[in-house]
Simulated scan of single mutants.
Amino acid sequence: MRIWVDADACPNVIKDVLYKVAMRREVELTLVANIPLRVPASPLIDTIHVADGFDEADHEIARQAQSGDLVITADIPLADRIVDKGATGLNPRGELYTEDNIKGLLRMRNLMEELRSAGSVSGGPAPIGPKDKQEFTNQLDRFLTKALNR
């Protein structure tokens, strides 16, 4: 079991949680980004630097993630791809992406994108706050406890 991180858009506060959890729970953590990243020195934590380009990190994660892995991403199309492979997604606000909810979330995301492009909706999500960090941490802990006790 490995944790993959769509690191280009992942907030630093969430990355910090992931570093601590990877070392405490002894779980491999791979951050994928199109910019070089600085991560704590640990044999459990590594990075993959992909080429610049739209969705390059997403493509790499989708290619490498396996059934049972956890992918940290706010990108719903990426989450859809990895759930189809048997992995689970978790967004930085603590919402799990699973077989039970991903298709509905993808439809909602596509609708919102259409509304934004038509000018009917503007803006994006609020910055990650302490409540989001706590929900993420709680959901991550529940997932890992279940996955590592199998």
Rank of each mutant, 00 (worst) to 15 (best):
M1F: 13
W4C: 02
W4N: 01
D6Q: 03
A7D: 02
D8I: 02
A9V: 08
A9F: 03
V13F: 00
D16R: 10
V17E: 04
K20R: 14
R24C: 00
E26L: 09
V27Y: 04
V27K: 04
T30E: 10
N34G: 10
I35N: 06
L37R: 04
V39K: 09
P40C: 15
P43T: 14
D46L: 09
H49I: 09
F54P: 06
F54V: 05
F54N: 09
E56N: 06
A57P: 00
A57H: 01
H59R: 15
H59W: 01
E60Y: 09
R63S: 10
R63Q: 06
A65D: 01
Q66N: 12
G68W: 10
G68N: 14
L70T: 03
V71H: 01
I76S: 02
L78Q: 02
A79N: 03
R81A: 13
I82G: 09
D84C: 01
G86I: 07
G86D: 07
G89I: 05
N91V: 00
P92H: 05
P92L: 04
L96V: 07
Y97C: 04
Y97V: 07
T98R: 02
E99L: 12
D100K: 02
G104N: 14
L106N: 05
R107T: 15
M108C: 12
M108R: 04
M108E: 07
R109M: 09
R109W: 03
R109V: 00
R109S: 04
M112T: 11
E113A: 15
S117D: 08
S117L: 12
V121H: 03
V121A: 03
S122V: 15
G124P: 02
P127W: 08
K131E: 12
K131Y: 00
E135I: 08
F136Y: 09
N138I: 15
Q139I: 01
R142E: 15
F143L: 13
L144G: 06
A147R: 13
A147P: 11
L148A: 15
L148V: 10
R150A: 11
